[in-house]
Design a protein around this nucleic acid. Structure first.
Lengths: 217, 217
DNA sequence: GCGTCCATCCGTGCTGACACCCATGTCGTC
DNA sequence: GACGACATGGGTGTCAGCACGGATGGACGC
């Protein structure tokens, strides 16, 4: 490719954007051509301008980085996506990969690792943080070996609808009233969701939904 | 004072430290002379070296920025402390003031606001973020007018301990076993927390804890 | 047409969450 | 010493969450 890699930077914290920008701009082969303060803005910018690589924070208002990643990889197949996050967390890691990200970088890493991740992404290589993240890769590979693939949790549309409402804190009765169905049906759906996703109760369901970017914290 | 202000920078995210350092170093009157990756390290560094101003993140391993602030302002009265955080949160704001911080800066602010906060701190002026933080100040002033003082919505240490465990999805019985106390006491604490924070149930508690950064999603 | 998936609904029973009442002992403060 | 804040414990009662069993009807594929 001719010229430097054009990077879109999305993080709701100005100071973090500023720092990352300064780090990336120090490299001659990387150029930050756009910034965004939330997920929705990131999608806009990426669709509007010419961008090769999107570096997305996970926790952002309006639309999370995971939602944005799903949106971007679906609409702009040529675009590479790198997740940059503070969460050293297995669930997020998997969600990020499923959302189409080709790298997962912790905010606690050194500058050169971030730069390395950007370059790896452009070479279409997966990049995962050194150190603590090793555990993630191991568990990931184990799953592949076991043939689990990515355990495709197929919740139906209706179930996802109820999932969101449950995760937002509504009781069965409230949801029933909202959807004009019986509270019993809501409970039945909820039970199916819990079973499909391997979750214990609505509290775990909530955390799952927040991680998956289905609802805001 | 002769020479630039000597700044100690504490944040567990290398990339954030890097960014803030670059921003501060661009100012001739500010010099970052030390960095720390957690609260305990921050206290060590501040006590060892000559530091005029400590810029502390709130969410850090080993010792939080709030604990570090309390420690530092007690042991080193000449030292100014500035909290730098992602939490636009009334609770933390009050906690920071009580801990002796003379400023509260969000990571979402612009560079110049951070610099302004550092300078204000050195002039012994209180600094609070523009924008969203106005609401905090208003609410604070209202409380002062009502004569509430700093009316402690604050949860106690023990309560915060239980808060985290509840938000992580543990039942009363599990928490009781973990802490070697009765399940009844856990329920009592949980009820007090819900009442103090104005929350409905453990699900809202979880979302609160996630927003406040007390637990990961 | 038959099977499968999905959405809808019901009953029963257990357990935990939550609200309300209560008391005890230990602090530190005034 | 009295008082308040805190942590500890108990009792009782209501309600929602969740597991388990069942049933119906509609859509879609083969």
């Amino acid at each position: 490719m001719s010229g430097p890699v054009r990077v879109l930077l999305a993080d709701d914290h100005t100071l973090v954007r500023r720092g990352v920008r300064l780090i990336l701009e120090a490299e001659p082969d990387l150029a930050v051509v756009a910034e965004a303060g939330d997920g929705a803005e990131a999608v806009e910018r990426a669709r509007a301008g010419d961008v090769d690589l999107a570096v997305l924070d996970i926790a952002m208002p309006r639309m999370t980085g995971l939602q944005a990643a799903r949106e971007l990889t679906r609409r702009l197949p040529g675009l590479r996506v790198l997740m940059l996050t503070m969460y050293d967390n297995e669930q997020y890691f998997f969600e990020a990969l499923k959302a189409g990200a080709c790298g997962y970088v912790l905010k606690s890493v050194a500058d050169r690792d971030l730069v390395a991740a950007c370059r790896a992404a452009m070479r279409d290589e997966a990049f995962v943080c050194p150190g603590a993240e090793r555990a993630l890769v191991r568990s990931w590979l184990e799953r592949l070996h076991r043939g689990d693939g990515l355990p495709e949790r197929a919740v139906t549309e209706r179930e996802e609808e109820i999932l969101k409402l449950v995760a937002e804190g509504h009781t069965s009765r409230e949801i029933a009233a909202l959807l004009f169905i019986s509270a019993k049906t809501v409970e039945r759906h909820r039970a199916n969701i819990l079973h499909k996703l391997g979750l214990r109760d609505r509290l775990e369901l909530t955390r799952y939904a927040i991680r998956a970017g289905l609802v805001d914290p």
